[in-house]
């Protein structure tokens, strides 16, 4: 597999180095397992089917947004507008379906369409208007989309969606939430996309060295537009799940979601410098955040303290990664 290309590649050498490779790749997974073990001992309720499915459901929205964010981070970019795109696309769906009484199919198309449109605009502003950094284009979109969401709803929520729209966010197949199945399917698709298609490989290349990539005959503008369009689409998809879960679309939905998504990518081993990061790492990063929130809830830690804890985990996770890189660099065989 050629998912990411870390500091020291497997040198096909000794078993010891191969083991080290494994540990390196699995770093965040080990973190997730460790965290779960601790919580299993701390709370008898943690390791129950109910609770695990609960975590799976709670992580779904962030997972969907994070995988779009991963693409932006792989190109050494960022997408700050995902939370606002989520809000605008869902309230527009609410207006179309609930207020105007159109069919749910049209509503879903409007929702995803707005995500695609705004993401595409992010990409166009970055490349065709040559804005210097996606921080700026997506910061602009973040404000515009949030403002529009408040204007079109007159700042009030829209409820009573038909069951078909709630399906993704609320339904279960057996004990398993549909939203989590959706996440697994989406992640599998992204894994194939990033590793086995040319565009996917170009995304890594653009993040690693844009100039070398351009001179290798790759249209990097096109790659970037695709990246931000997909990120917008994933934000809207996350919104669809959110609407199903709470049976409501509201203009302040998704506030701060961009930071949860970024955190999931970073905890999962993606590099802000671009070019490094994996699909499965991001899933684990998102799970770690969900498990942590869930565990702290079970232990009745206050919401304020939870925020503090998440902050500490982000810094610790990246610090561990830094240490691992250093260890790998001065490894002695």
């Amino acid at each position: 597999m050629n998912a990411s290309t870390p500091e020291v590649q497997s040198h096909g050498g000794t078993q010891k180095t191969q083991l080290r490779q494994m540990i390196k790749k699995m770093g965040s997974l080990i973190g997730l397992i460790g965290l779960s073990l601790v919580l299993t001992f701390a709370s008898p309720y943690f390791l129950t089917i109910d609770n695990i499915m609960n975590v799976a459901r709670q992580s779904a929205i962030n997972s969907l947004i994070a995988i779009g964010m991963l693409l932006a981070i792989l190109t050494a970019g960022i997408d700050l507008s995902v939370g606002s795109i989520l809000a605008l696309s869902t309230v527009m769906m609410g207006i179309v379906v609930v207020k105007m009484g159109m069919s749910p199919v049209v509503g879903v198309l409007v929702c995803l369409g707005i995500g695609i449109l705004l993401g595409w605009l992010n990409g166009m502003m970055l490349t065709k208007m040559s804005l210097p950094h996606p921080f700026i284009s997506t910061l602009g979109t973040m404000n515009v989309a949030r403002g529009l969401a408040l204007i079109v709803t007159a700042a009030s929520p829209i409820s009573n969606f038909p069951a078909s729209i709630q399906f993704l966010g609320a339904a279960f197949i057996g004990p398993i939430p549909v939203s989590f199945i959706l996440v697994l399917v989406v992640y599998a698709v992204f894994h194939v996309f990033l590793n086995y298609t040319t565009v996917g490989r170009y995304i890594y290349a653009v993040g690693g060295n844009p100039e070398a990539t351009r001179l290798s005959g790759i249209n990097i503008d096109k790659v970037l537009i695709i990246v931000y369009t997909i990120s917008g689409l994933m934000a809207a998809l996350g919104g669809l799940v959110l609407v199903g879960r709470v049976n409501s679309a509201y203009p302040l939905a998704g506030l701060g979601y961009e930071f949860d998504a970024i955190a999931a990518c970073i905890i999962g081993g993606a590099s802000f410098m671009g070019g490094e990061g994996t699909v499965w790492g991001t899933l684990i990063g998102s799970m770690i955040m969900a498990v942590l929130r869930n565990g702290l809830n079970l232990l009745s830690v206050s919401a304020e303290m939870q925020t503090v804890a998440i902050g500490i985990v982000i810094i610790l996770a990246v610090y561990i990664d830094v240490l691992r890189h250093k260890a790998a660099a001065r490894v002695k065989t």
Partner: peptide
């Protein structure tokens, strides 16, 4: 600066074009 993606491996670099 313009030829290689230094963080990536030989496979990725040599097949980019």
């Amino acid at each position: 600066g313009q030829g290689l993606i230094l963080m990536h491996d030989i496979i990725v670099n040599s097949t980019l074009t």
